Amino acid sequence: MIALQNNAYKSIGLELLREFIATEELSHTNFFQLEELLSITAYEYRKGRISKDEISKISLGFGKEFLENTLHGRGFLKPNGYPGDYLFLDRIYTNHISEDSKYKIWDEYVQQSAAPNAVRNRKEYFKHLAKAKAKLASSIKVLNIISGSGRELVELYNAEKENIFTTCVEIDDEAIAFSKELNKAHLERIEYVNSNIFRYQTEESYDFIWSAGLFDYLNDRAFVKLLRRFKGCLKKGGEIVVGNYNEAHNPSRDYMEILGDWHLIHRTETQLLQLAKEAGFAEHEIHVSRMPDNVILYLHIHCL
């Protein structure tokens, strides 16, 4: 009897979500209704009552034209072959909203969500740290891992931070081309390296190593391996900062996983500290910080 009830509940949840998507009649007054349907569907999915195949087909109900013309669609379709590509994130950074009334409300829904707000806050966090470090030295060298669109850099350099020199490591050559164009007035202070970060080799050492959009795709073993490599690139007195979505608080997680097919490895503060210790850092060298929204945790590692 319980199994029958669960199956009925599962079918109703999926059907209501499909119907909601098929109408595309989202409005500011029913954002909460979509959130509720996503929450129900996510619960059932995580309990194993809805298959991954069923989840993957939900967003197809929007239709090809919709997916090709919305922020949500770019996130779901992954035209560059990976989730959260440089252009998707740059549109979040710039709060892009379609001017077409058919798509505008869906872009507004995505942009007001917790994860996009956290991404914009992440950009501000980087700029704050870089500016603070630049004030304390004649010059600083920054290693920017998976540098994407470079939006944070153009904003930083437009503030005339002439003593900051950045090496950007990025595997997507389209992202590098986009960033170079965006930062064309500042290229004398930026070096681009088109490389997989696990194959990247350098004899340089850096004052500040920043990686905000990589580690929540890595399992624990790869996480520790990469931190150990970064340790060898850090100057004495330097700092590594790694961003990772918060296991305890991400209100956008249901949307990301159910509609966006965007799955990240969320971690707790305790887990981040433990991974840093496994990578060979002492307890007094590490701490975790966060912005007020608490959606992304920042693991700070100091080379004392």
Rank of each mutant, 00 (worst) to 15 (best):
L4I: 11
S147D: 00
V224D: 02
R199A: 04
V193G: 04
I176R: 00
A137T: 01
G63K: 10
L136S: 15
G150F: 02
N80Y: 09
H28A: 13
S113D: 11
E204C: 08
A137Q: 14
Y298T: 08
L37D: 02
T41Q: 09
E25C: 04
H263N: 13
V142K: 07
Y103P: 02
S39R: 15
L226V: 06
Y109C: 10
V154C: 14
R267A: 01
N246V: 06
N117A: 14
P116E: 09
N30G: 08
Q274L: 07
I21L: 08
V242S: 05
E25F: 00
A132M: 14
E152Y: 10
N144I: 00
I12K: 11
L17W: 05
R290N: 11
K277L: 12
G238L: 07
N7P: 06
N250A: 03
Y255Q: 01
V154W: 06
K277P: 04
V242L: 09
L156V: 13
L14F: 00
G150K: 01
S51M: 05
H287Y: 15
L272N: 09
F215S: 03
D207L: 04
T167P: 03
Y125I: 09
I140M: 12
I50K: 02
S101Q: 09
N158P: 05
V110G: 01
R189T: 09
L37N: 09
N294T: 08
Y82W: 04
K184H: 13
H263P: 07
F32R: 14
I40C: 08
A134P: 07
G243W: 02
R253K: 14
A115G: 02
H186M: 00
H28R: 14
G150T: 01
Y103F: 14
A132L: 13
F208T: 05
K141R: 11
Y217K: 11
L275H: 06
H249R: 05
D220H: 11
E25T: 07
D85H: 06
P292L: 04
E191F: 08
V142A: 12
E35I: 05
H302R: 13
L272R: 04
F165G: 08
Y43C: 12
S27M: 08
L218V: 03
V169D: 02
E36H: 09
D53C: 03
H263G: 04
V119F: 13
A276T: 00
Y86K: 07
L14W: 01
